[in-house]
Write a protein that binds this DNA or RNA. Structure first.
Lengths: 153, 153
DNA sequence: CTAAAGTCTATATTGCATATAGGTTAAGCG
DNA sequence: CGCTTAACCTATATGCAATATAGACTTTAG
């Protein structure tokens, strides 16, 4: 299960990418539009900024902006910003090379060997889907539904 | 991150499959051999039994036995016994069809669409690796290391 | 009947995820 | 300069799930 942080982060980024004609967004605006607790979103956007995904400006006329184009921003990089990494077990963490506390022999641990495949499979998906891709899929689903509704009428 | 329960469960099953010449195992024996808190393991083995992975007999001479052969027991079925399912978001849960509390429109949610791919990728790995496979990989890693050590000497 | 061994119920403990409150700093504007 | 805007930072609440333990109950072999 991914965290609320990741979901809210993706929603906020989606809103920013989707809303064309603007480059700068207020926290309050995004929070309102996407139904995210404002104070919580504040911390989330800050994390995204610290990970180079957003940039910001203080003061009047300020706000947050996308630091990368939606077409080059991967979902993987967003999720990693919040989850630390995508490792299903501690010993596979890329960032902090921790070992699982209960593991006696990490080199030959069967669980680790299998979970390495899982981690690779997850990364293969998330690192190859961009924010633009995600929005496009969402839009496609919306159009598809509209057609079905037309049909029903 | 998978839970300790899943890891302990896999370790216990691995021990039982690996220890040939026995069909019945005491909780205390497995706990000792694998370094798992006995009372905790108790609950874990019970879960595995309730999921049809283990069978048990009470009383003297009793204990736990594998209900399926290691070659037909998938890692996925074990992990699902503990994690409920492998869904990265609630709305993709197979068992309980819950919707994500924060999601306004589940049909067109981009996050859901992407995470469905992730779930499929994870399932593809875990449902195609058996307990026997896992043990074999572990054994292979052990042999490989032994060779390297021989070489070093 | 007694001992062995699994099963059940309840409870502790701890850590993390989700938030919220309130103050601080930077920037634009008159 | 000083006021206002808006991001930034620190601390704290809160609740829930994961990890684990204790102790009583049930079944079965001999």
């Amino acid at each position: 299960m991914i965290s609320m942080r990741s979901k809210y982060g993706l929603k906020a980024l989606g809103y920013m990418a989707r809303t064309s004609g603007k480059e700068s967004f207020l926290i309050a605006e995004i929070a309102q539009a996407e139904g995210i607790p404002k104070k919580f979103l504040e911390a989330i956007l800050l994390t995204l900024k610290n990970n180079g995904i957003l940039s910001s400006r203080k003061g009047p006329g300020g706000g947050y902006s996308l630091a990368k184009s939606p077409a080059t921003l991967t979902i993987g990089s967003v999720v990693r910003s919040f989850e630390g990494d995508l490792a299903p077990v501690q010993c596979l963490s890329e960032t902090q090379h921790a070992s699982c506390p209960e593991c006696a022999d990490e080199d030959t641990c069967g669980i680790k060997l299998v979970m390495a495949d899982v981690a690779a499979a997850v990364a293969a998906v998330l690192d190859n889907v961009t924010l633009a891709d995600m929005l496009q899929r969402s839009e496609f689903a919306r159009q598809k539904r509209a057609q079905v509704v037309d049909f029903a009428i």
